[in-house]
């Protein structure tokens, strides 16, 4: 279950922005929206850490910083390792009575490169050791910061500079790694997926992730207009379509027990509302080549994978 926390949109609007204006993310950057929303859901003193990635680079261009809370960055693979260190240090300070706060939360932010590929060993280790922190993965599905290289999070058929679409190869030939399921396999207390378009769901899941005792993992889809070759004004619309097409279903797993979240439950109970992946793909220029006659079979394969993963998820949630 996500948090019992009750709030209205205006209450959230009245909370201070802890991720401030003036950061240098591109126009229409959904990861920036995700960071703002996540920091609106915190419950008290919080320390953040970032792995290298778009949001680390754009939020802290020396000497400027967009963070209104204590923030640390060391290297690409160390978001989870940093968080473990911070959490342990806090535990020691608490034992020595040197902090008066009841709890200080730790949030680690990582991009898909820093989580799917480079940071997975640090993350896996931190979760295994059971540190009490929330890991937020903002998934923009490639290494956007260095110029759109493929990562483990890039979906099948997507164009990137290192999986280019040509006459023979239709973009990335491999599937997206199911990272959230990998995290559930760690038998951690709380794993969830979220989308900024369904912001109430996202905020409740963040709060829940902070409330649980032990590690929590949140996988958030975050469209990148530059890398996805999409219209900057459509970033939120695309993150909504990702849920409506079941490409990125919203669910949460508490102690390994899967349950579908409301926006995806609609798709499960009323399958006629589920949209086809074509609608999602045609909004993004990175899938443009798939609409050529020679690559049309790839769209079929994408739909097939989405359906397969969706039915597997329904099975885990005990919905047939």
């Amino acid at each position: 279950m996500s948090s019992e926390w009750k709030f209205t949109a205006k209450e959230i609007a009245e909370r201070t922005d802890l991720f401030m204006s003036g950061h240098r993310a591109c126009a229409g950057c959904a990861p920036a929206t995700v960071h703002r929303l996540v920091l609106k859901a915190i419950r008290g003193p919080t320390i953040a850490t970032n792995s290298t990635g778009c949001m680390e680079v754009t939020s802290t261009i020396y000497p400027f910083t967009a963070w209104k809370i204590p923030w640390i960055h060391t290297a690409f693979e160390t978001a989870a390792a940093n968080a473990s260190g911070i959490e342990t240090a806090l535990k020691v300070l608490k034992r020595k009575d040197r902090i008066e706060h009841e709890h200080v939360d730790v949030i680690a932010f990582g991009g898909d490169g820093g989580t799917f590929d480079i940071g997975i060993q640090a993350l896996s280790g931190a979760v295994e050791r059971g540190h009490d922190f929330l890991y937020v993965l903002y998934d923009n599905e490639a290494y956007m910061n260095t110029g759109i290289q493929r990562s483990g999070g890039t979906p099948l058929g997507a164009w990137t500079t290192t999986s280019p679409a040509g006459r023979r190869i239709p973009g990335k030939p491999q599937l997206k790694k199911p990272i959230a399921d990998i995290m559930v396999a760690h038998e951690m207390p709380y794993v969830a997926t979220a989308s900024p378009a369904f912001w109430t769901d996202l905020l409740r899941k963040v709060r829940r992730g902070l409330e649980v005792d032990g590690p929590a993992f949140l996988h958030v889809i975050a469209p990148c207009p530059r890398g996805w070759r999409s219209d900057p004004s459509k970033s939120i619309a695309i993150s909504r379509l990702a849920v409506e097409t079941c490409t990125f279903p919203l669910w949460e797993a508490t102690d390994g027990e899967y349950s579908l979240s409301a926006p995806s439950k609609v798709m499960a109970l009323r399958p006629e509302r589920k949209k086809t992946v074509t609608e999602y793909l045609k909004m993004q220029g990175r899938f443009r080549h798939l609409f050529k006659p020679e690559f049309e079979h790839v769209i079929g394969r994408i739909q097939e994978t989405v359906n397969k993963r969706w039915h597997k998820l329904l099975g885990k949630c005990n919905i047939s």
Binding site: A13, E14, G22, C29, T33, L37
Partner: peptide, 19 residues
């Protein structure tokens, strides 16, 4: 209608609601 969705979705925090 002051639903404040623009404030929530703005990546830059450039829109605020004055109560």
């Amino acid at each position: 209608t002051r639903c404040v969705l623009c404030h929530l979705f703005c990546p830059d925090g450039a829109i605020t609601w004055k109560a």
